[in-house]
């Protein structure tokens, strides 16, 4: 359990990752109530293990996968239907489309490479805006930034990812569109 002194750090982490965890669950489960219940369970476990966790983001994403597996296992036992858990795991190969696979892998590497972000907070900001479609203003609210601060930092992250793609041999991002 987290000591009382670390509750401040936990609250900061909660505010930073809550929209990400919720959005991931919502995109996987497509059910707001279930997403909320699992989100709560994930953060309870997060609090219980907070002091021993090194990478908050990594731990939370693994916890999400675990909770989603449990969710579908329980659901399949209730419905007496076999559900392939792997079907719901975000494996990039499952989303493959002819001709796009290589570019998709490169883009995904650019996004996942933490060198393109100054902090985990930057990564959360990018995910909220680019992946989950939040506005600068809404994303800023979760991270304690103004709309302008969010827009400025997002611009910097985007520039670094574009530079990374150039290093990987993609001269212009527009070529990919």
């Amino acid at each position: 359990m987290a000591a009382s002194g670390s509750m401040k750090a936990y609250r900061k982490a909660y505010c930073e990752y809550y929209p990400i965890v919720y959005s991931v669950l919502l995109s996987r489960l497509r059910n707001g109530d279930d997403a909320e219940d699992i989100c709560q369970e994930v953060f309870i476990r997060f609090l219980d293990n907070f002091d021993s966790i090194e990478s908050h983001r990594g731990w939370l994403l693994k916890a999400i996968e675990f909770e989603i597996s449990n969710y579908y296992r329980k659901k399949s036992s209730r419905n007496d239907e076999a559900v392939d858990v792997a079907e719901f795991v975000n494996d990039i190969n499952l989303a493959f489309e002819n001709g796009f696979r290589d570019a998709r892998i490169v883009i995904n590497e650019a996004i996942e490479n933490m060198e393109n972000y100054d902090s985990e907070e930057d990564r959360t900001l990018f995910d909220l805006i680019a992946v989950y479609g939040f506005s600068y203003k809404e994303a800023g609210k979760y991270l304690g930034m103004t709309r302008w601060q969010a827009e400025y930092r997002y611009g910097q992250i985007e520039a670094r990812i574009v530079d990374y793609l150039k290093k990987m041999g993609i001269k212009e991002v527009f070529d990919l569109l």
């Binding site: 796009f100 998709r104 996004i111």
Partner: peptide, 10 residues
């Protein structure tokens, strides 16, 4: 990201 199906808009 949308074109390469890497987005999940909420």
């Amino acid at each position: 990201l949308h074109k390469y199906r890497l987005d999940h808009p909420v």
